[in-house]
């Protein structure tokens, strides 16, 4: 009986410990001033995106520079489904049924994230034939395509001008709940037969094929699933800011989310969470230093761009001295040592 309970504890501890950390952080930060709460909310949204990216990169071992395109599709998809018709009539030029359509936020979010998945499936079928650097470049190309389309498709996305009028509902608690869901789903996937088969192929593709693993298919499953989670992150981003512009779904976010994953350690869920927390905290500190502070009449401020330079420097150090990331690609293990025998 005790043995079985201990076994169960061992199994869920890696994800339970992370969930506890997030809940405690949210509880503490929710007591802080509004700007701090907003920073925390933004960090939880980033976390959902990073967990989504991790589902693919971490389990398959294939780098993707394209996942932010799924975020964009989720964000714009949900925007089109939730902006009030009167507003849509003014800023967009949609077919009548699309203009009239307005859904409650949760169904809209699920549909938008599903659209990201469908897009991932369509580009994934050819992309999953590639591996290594060509796969990474292929995903990058898909990001560029989505970015350019969104920036120019005036009728549907508003083009270069920002899209406004989205209902704002993503606060710290809402994003916490979705972050916990993402965490649970990611862990369930990596512990499933699908996740295990993909992780085997990450270690040795040839041996995986020889043991009956359809590597391409397993990669595609992870790609589509990860697009759903990242798409959901995009949805929450949209309904946190309330305003969408295409430039918020391009290189900056791609860099920062990948930096989070690399710094934390891209082979474990614990790495995705650790990296997001560390980079968010550090980024915030650097931003404060950048903004400067007053001592008496003297205003001290660091040069602009300190945040980007600081984070890049940290990533470089990690790559050089701890290439498996802060967590070394491990999950957090059950802290009690197994009894002898």
């Amino acid at each position: 009986m005790i043995g079985r309970m201990e076994k169960a504890a061992r199994l869920i501890w890696p994800v339970l410990s992370l969930a506890l950390v997030l809940v405690v952080l949210a509880a503490l930060l929710s007591l802080g001033p509004m700007p701090l709460q907003r920073t925390a909310t933004e960090a939880f949204i980033r976390l959902i995106v990073v967990i989504g990216i991790y589902i693919f990169i971490g389990n398959s071992g294939i780098l993707s520079f394209g996942h932010v395109s799924f975020m964009a599709i989720g964000a714009y998809g949900s925007a089109l489904l939730t902006i009030p018709p009167t507003m849509k009539k003014i800023v967009l030029d949609l077919p009548p049924f699309m203009t009239a359509l307005q859904l409650p936020t949760i169904p809209a979010a699920v549909i938008a994230a599903t659209l990201s998945s469908i897009f991932a499936f369509l580009i994934g079928v050819p992309l999953m034939r590639l591996s290594g650097i060509s796969a990474a470049m292929g995903t990058f190309a898909s990001l560029a395509i989505v970015y350019v389309v969104i920036s120019n498709w005036k009728e549907v996305t508003g083009g270069a001008s920002a899209l406004i009028g989205l209902p704002v509902y993503a606060d710290i608690w809402v994003t916490l709940i979705y972050a916990l869901l993402a965490l649970g789903l990611a862990y369930a996937y990596q512990e499933s037969r699908y996740g295990r088969r993909l992780r085997a192929s990450r270690e040795n593709e040839v041996a995986a094929l020889a043991t009956g693993i359809n590597v391409r298919r397993e990669r595609l499953i992870a790609f589509v699933f990860s697009a759903f989670i990242v798409g959901f992150g995009g949805v929450l981003h949209a309904h946190f800011i309330g305003v969408l512009s295409s430039s918020s779904f391009y290189l900056d976010v791609t860099f920062i989310t990948l930096a989070m994953l690399v710094i934390g350690g891209m082979n474990s869920l614990a790495g995705a969470v650790t990296g997001t927390i560390v980079v968010s905290v550090l980024g915030e500190l650097l931003r404060l230093i950048e903004a400067g502070f007053d001592i008496g009449t003297v205003h001290l401020a660091a040069p602009r761009g300190l945040r980007e330079v600081g984070l890049s420097f940290l990533m470089l150090m990690i790559l050089l001295f701890r290439p498996q990331g802060l967590t070394s690609g491990r999950e957090f293990a059950w802290p009690i040592a197994p009894r002898a025998g």
Binding site: R197, R199, A200, E203, N204, A207, A208, N267, G329
Partner: peptide, 14 residues
């Protein structure tokens, strides 16, 4: 050609 980063158990399970 083992799955190097996985445990012996996970190799066989795979």
């Amino acid at each position: 050609r083992l799955f190097g980063g996985l445990s012996v158990f996970q190799n066989v399970e795979a």
